[in-house]
Design a protein around this nucleic acid. Sequence first.
DNA 1: GGGGTCCAGAAGA
DNA 2: TTCCATCTTCTGGACCCC
Length: 679
Amino acid sequence: MAKEGAAEQPTSSRQPPSSTAAADGGPLYGQAEKDYHHLFNFTNNKAGMDKVDREKANQTIYEMSKNSSYFKNEQRKDDNRKEDIDRMKAHLEAYRNSQPEMRLKAEQSVRGVLQRLEKERESKRGSWWCHVDMDMFYCAVEIRDDPSLKDKPVAVGGPGMICTANYVARRYGVRAAMPGFIGKKLCADQGAELVFVGGNMQKYQAESMTVRRVLSEFDPHLKMGSLDEAFLNLTDYLKENDLDSHEGRVKVATEIREKITEATRGLTASAGIAPGRMMAKIASDFNKPNGQTIIEERDAAGFMDSLSVRKIPGVGKVGEHKLEALNIKTCRDILDNAVLITQACSDKSTQFLLRAAMGIDGEGRASERKSFSCERTFRATQDRKFLEEKLRDIAESLAEDLKSHFMRSRHITLKVKTADFKVKQLAMPLSRSTDEADDIDAGAQRAFSKYIDTHGDDTKAPPAIRLLGIKCANLTHVFGGTGPDGEEREAPKGTIDYFLQQQQKQKGGKGKASEVGDISIEIEDDEQMDQIDQMGDNADAPAGDDHPGNQLLLPDIIDLEEWEEDVDVNHPQPQPPSCSSSPCQPAPSSASLQPSLPLPLPQKRQLPQSSAAAQPKQPAPKRGKKGGKRNQDAATVCVSGPMDALLKRMADRKAAGGGGGGSSAAGGGGVDGECIELD
DNA sequence: GGGGTCCAGAAGA
DNA sequence: TTCCATCTTCTGGACCCC
Ligand SMILES: Cc1cn([C@H]2C[C@H](O)[C@@H](COP(=O)(O)OP(=O)(O)OP(=O)(O)O)O2)c(=O)[nH]c1=O
Ligand SMILES: [Mg+2]
């Protein structure tokens, strides 16, 4: 056990400085927890669970789960994780037995890192953040609109899945992401009847806008983290209004919450104010529901110290257990065992954990949306026809979604979940950007064929499938129209986007699209101009493009014809030539209901249906970026946010080279398959 | 040693 | 009787082609 002299702790009152009642918040792990409980996602103590008889609820959940395919799959995954942890432990043991000089060096290095972080924290003093989070959001809206539900246990969702539940239901152990039939049983066992309410995203979106409007008064640049939460930088507001004191902060938090409740006709919110985004977020959860917590600078370190690592946004169920295997349970433990972490985790994970444990914020999230996806669950089936039709439906829905956001995609990914709950993804780059259902469908079908080919053969039938999904990435904005919020789309000067947009305005041609994202290359010489000029012209063969062997060749577009066909009342096209003055109104997407605040990419979400719908005949952790930042989607990885590196790293340190790992079909674009030219 | 893509998996609302 | 969502982002490692 490496006991490191972490950065000296500023004398800390270990007491969380809340302004209302204090929750016990202790992890209460250990004791006789059966060793399957950790498989459930809802055993942690979140808001509203304090009084639940956890043992009993777990027992019920287990009884209802143990024989399901779902549970078996969870066990399989858990077994894999256990192996990873074993390997990690073995590796750490090796470190402990390594040369003393080596360990000394590691320890010194860590001391340096911690000191640097301490300095960074000092340098960031004086800025104040507030995190606001609506209480049981979807449910609160439903209950407000039907007061008869008020004292009953209510869940938004259905027998298949619960999105969220009110606090009455939570007392029985009902939680978000819990299947409805289990929630029902949990209540029934205690003589209560859980009421399901099917959600209504439009309503939640509208309420979200209302909340946003209220909050923008305190920080016009606020960032919405989702429909029901927001981050505000209160530094200026506090200074300007002479409220830069503890009392001032209490007052502001109170005012914010009151105004929200008033504007939403009764919805309540919880708020946290702290000298950092992450701490503010943790604080807002501290006195939920309808409560608030203020963390003063002098209390920050002490507050973090006592926190369970699980409270760090980005450390989830798996991360918690990995750390637990290192005997690290609290943020203080992270700092005290920084050397262990350094040894076991990737640089990125280490950095993330150390910073988080000290209450230092990481980088924010990417602001541009990177993908659109749609997926559907149904009764597992092998019926190819049915599956293909399903895929078609999904493609259509996605195309509509893209169009309404004036986006096009050049890369799609098919997602397949089999009856045993195993998930598989297949990438399919396209030869050009598209927002047409036919194109998306073609790509998805192609990928699906590949899936069938590789997962079933002459001897063996392909497995039954319970979910199909498509993700559209590598997005491109179509300029020249208006966005869903009614704003005209205009690219920033000096970017390719801007260049293309101007060009389009001049030519009056069909709206070209350019890469979305942070690509902003200065246009300086003719050569570049030429290159750019070609970018939009997908006329040329994609030969030089991505992976010639695994790319779907889409039929080329003939501008004029397409233009005429596309002009359709229901789907006003964004790219009318020279429509720079924005004559076209956006499709009446659910997004444009409220005023003009540029809303943060409201996602069109399908709420869980009553269990298996159709029949055969559906994690801020601010990671730092290392050298090369990743562009577009590129999907993700590794088990567990920051943490898993631990295991992974150990894993192959040992079993180096081997084809081990998960992917049976190796990575790199090499997948073969002839391109099909559609027409 | 770069770049790049592909994929599994974690996380959070 | 059965019965476990949907959408989004991010990380890391495997593989590829230089
Ligand atoms: C956690 C979670 C939330 N949601 C939706 C429903 C929630 O109302 C909404 C906000 O999520 P949360 O803020 O996590 O939960 P909540 O607002 O319902 O309850 P509270 O904050 O009081 O603990 O996001 C899901 O659809 N699936 C999920 O797994
Ligand atoms: Mg909430």
